[in-house]
């Protein structure tokens, strides 16, 4: 084919559209019991881009995306930025390994990254308020790992079609 996926940088439009779509899915109002199970879609998208194009998307990109979320929906500025950058650091530091991961280990790795993300988010919240529902905050770790294969294949398909 000669079209190396890794070297072609995604155009700005695709990045913005992708982020908008992820934010919209993340925002759809859910019943209160289901809300805890919703995976952080924006984070999953960022993880995918870090996986596929680590030379174009790095820590600064993740941090800026997090800051954007903080600006739009955040209660406290900086909490998503910090959580995003911690998650992105995990992904980038393990890049040599994740490159050879099979799908199952990829899911496990995504679960760990989402767990780190949720821990940072929750800690920043605990700074100023009491949170009674600590355990449910981590339900999204499970759903993220379960959803990851489907999301990965879908993104890969759209990614291929773009080029």
């Amino acid at each position: 084919m000669g079209r190396c996926l890794v070297n072609n940088r995604l155009s700005m439009t695709v990045v913005v559209l992708g982020l908008c779509a992820a934010i919209s899915i993340w925002l759809i109002p859910l019943r209160s019991e289901l809300a805890f199970w919703r995976p952080p879609f924006v984070l999953l998208l960022v993880i995918y881009w870090l996986f596929r194009q680590p030379q174009h998307y790095g820590l600064v990109f993740a941090w800026l995306v997090g800051l954007g979320i903080d600006f739009m929906f955040g209660e406290i500025l900086g909490q998503h930025a910090l959580a995003m950058s911690v998650a992105a650091y995990l992904v980038i530091s393990q890049q040599q390994r994740t490159h050879y991961f099979k799908m199952l280990s990829q899911c496990g790795f995504v679960a760990i990254v989402v767990l780190a993300y949720e821990v940072v988010l929750l800690s920043s919240k605990l700074l100023i308020e009491d949170v009674d529902t600590l355990l449910p905050s981590f339900y999204s770790v499970l759903t993220s790992a379960l959803l990851w294969p489907a999301l990965f294949l879908l993104l890969q398909k759209t990614h291929r079609e773009q080029w």
């Binding site: 941090w63 997090g66 500025l77 900086g78 909490q79 930025a81 910090l82 911690v86 650091y89 700074l127």
Partner: peptide, 8 residues
């Protein structure tokens, strides 16, 4: 991370 924490 420091910038994020500072903002928080």
């Amino acid at each position: 991370a420091f910038a994020g924490a500072l903002l928080i």
